[in-house]
Design a protein around this nucleic acid. Structure first.
Lengths: 204, 204
DNA sequence: CCATTTAATGAACAAGTTGTTGATTATTAT
DNA sequence: ATAATAATCAACAACTTGTTCATTAAATGG
């Protein structure tokens, strides 16, 4: 995609700006950040910022797109037969494990961008990626006429639920491992929210 | 809570400003809206804005808080025994029906504030309200030790799923009725995402 | 209907941010 | 070591912000 910026100054400057962005988003939220804030925090000249980004929105976009691209790459590791064999009780869906591992490695930025002071449009982008992955690996095998609910709402339900659990995990300190989290998600999704409460059909 | 603004001029001005906010959020997103934009669109003097709101963030906050309060009132209509009797196949959870009805009545603002150009913090507020309502009416009756997954992740899963379906419904033109939507949600939640696909336990 | 109260207007203000430019300095690559 | 280029610094006009004050317009309620 992008020609590589070999020059170490560029890499350094971009890193400083992006680190400043993460810190400032956590401190005060993206909306009230100024380019001046960013360059002061990064300790670079304000003009330098404009050598790399058009404005603060361009900065956020580039950060987000990079993340989406890297997560997209994780989907290439999926083995098609995984979708079929797993029962969700012992083995989670592998992509979800990779996803949590990636989130953990980039937790400081992911936490703010998916948090209350974050960016609604990034949530949509990530949800859409989850949606596509689910569809390609699982839902495409289903027959529309056998569904008890419209498929688009089911997809919205499951992908939003996954994103929501991710957000809660990030907010609450990421105490459980990626594998544990993926297992929790596959259990709820496959057994159903009510079933995992321990209730039988009669009780509710 | 608030002393009533009897003066019709105040009501008119606030309505003009809020309508302008909705339109501008849809056009360009909240972040790039200026007070000047708002007052030009509302066709009022810029100084007048500051007689009612501290800045554009205060405006958004007041709009959001008003909505949250009104939805909060809907929860008072819940009959405690509803939570127990319903099986989710024929009768949806009544609060969810009320919620969709309210969203439909205020769809223009709800659509933008919950959409890609919306406000992440409002999503958190609404999700938290859904979470509390679920907890008070259903989950408080469950025994923690019988749960197959940690209860906080289950709550995050279900409330995020509900919000996500709401967002998809708003985005896709609100074609289904509030009752149909509530039924879709109770079906997926009670039967489980996999079960509503029509798959039996053997097939997946 | 009229007098009083109060909201809205319009103009002006300093302070701060933005995005750009051009000249200069510092660093990197080879 | 040299050429290329990234970063710095200062300055710029244009714009937004939040506030003030005098003036005009509208609503209230008696």
């Amino acid at each position: 995609m992008l020609e590589r910026p070999t020059d170490r100054r560029i890499i350094r400057t971009k890193r400083l700006i992006r680190d400043a962005l993460t810190e400032l988003m956590e401190e005060k939220g993206f909306e009230v950040i100024t380019v001046r804030d960013l360059t002061e925090k990064a300790d670079i000249n304000r003009g330098t910022f404009y050598l790399h980004y058009r404005d603060k929105f361009d900065l956020l976009d580039q950060c987000e797109d990079e993340i989406i691209n890297e997560i997209q790459k994780l989907t290439h590791k999926i083995d098609p037969k995984d979708a079929l064999k797993f029962d969700g009780q012992k083995e989670p869906f592998p992509f979800i494990v990779y996803l949590f591992e990636y989130l953990h490695e980039n937790s400081s930025f992911m936490k703010v961008v998916l948090g209350p002071k974050g960016d609604a449009s990034f949530q949509v982008k990530l949800k859409e990626l989850i949606r596509r992955t689910f569809f390609q690996n699982i839902l495409s095998k289903l027959k529309q006429e056998e569904m008890l609910v419209p498929v688009d709402f089911l997809i919205a339900y499951v992908s939003s639920a996954h994103l929501g659990v991710i957000q809660h995990w990030l907010e609450s300190g990421m105490e459980k491992s990626p594998r544990e989290m993926a297992l929790i998600l596959s259990r709820i999704t496959l057994l159903g929210p009510r079933h995992v409460t321990g209730l039988t059909s009669k009780e509710l």
